[in-house]
Nucleic acid binder design. Structure first.
Length: 118
DNA sequence: AATTTGACGACCG
DNA sequence: TCGGTCGCCAAAT
């Protein structure tokens, strides 16, 4: 069984679309208590768009912290918002009613390489 | 190969 | 603040 590929995260046994690998890899980097918007992910990847990120999450999001991905307005996925809000709250994510306080919870990959701030 | 979908974003009223 | 509309771009059918 020769598999020339190595180094990929064994989160899925089947070959994922290139875009899905990038999205899932970034979603898994989101620390607890923080969230990222679909648009922010697409922007960080440098290509695609918020719709593409959402489309990937709908198919493969179940393997990652999908609840840490919210809309730019701070509202979690419309399909399971109650479920997501509960998990976000359990992680200590700053919520504001049924919406995430993006002003405090918005995370960016750059922060991970720049130590923690106040 | 073409069309439709999709866990959205920004804009408008 | 809320609801409706158009646009985006890759994946699935």
């Amino acid at each position: 069984m020769a598999r020339p590929d190595s180094g990929e995260a064994p989160r899925e046994h089947a070959p994922l679309p290139d875009y899905a690998e990038e999205v899932l890899a970034l979603v898994e980097r989101i620390p607890p208590g923080r969230v990222m918007s679909y648009g922010a992910i697409a922007d960080w990847l440098g290509h695609g768009g918020p719709r593409q990120v959402g489309a990937v999450m709908s198919r493969y999001g179940g393997a990652v912290g999908w609840h840490r991905v919210v809309a730019a307005a701070g509202r979690p996925p419309l399909c399971h918002e109650g479920q997501a809000l509960r998990m976000l709250r359990a992680e200590g994510t700053p919520l504001r009613g049924n919406r995430v306080d993006m002003a405090r919870a918005a995370w960016h990959p750059h922060e991970d390489a720049s130590a923690a701030e106040a």
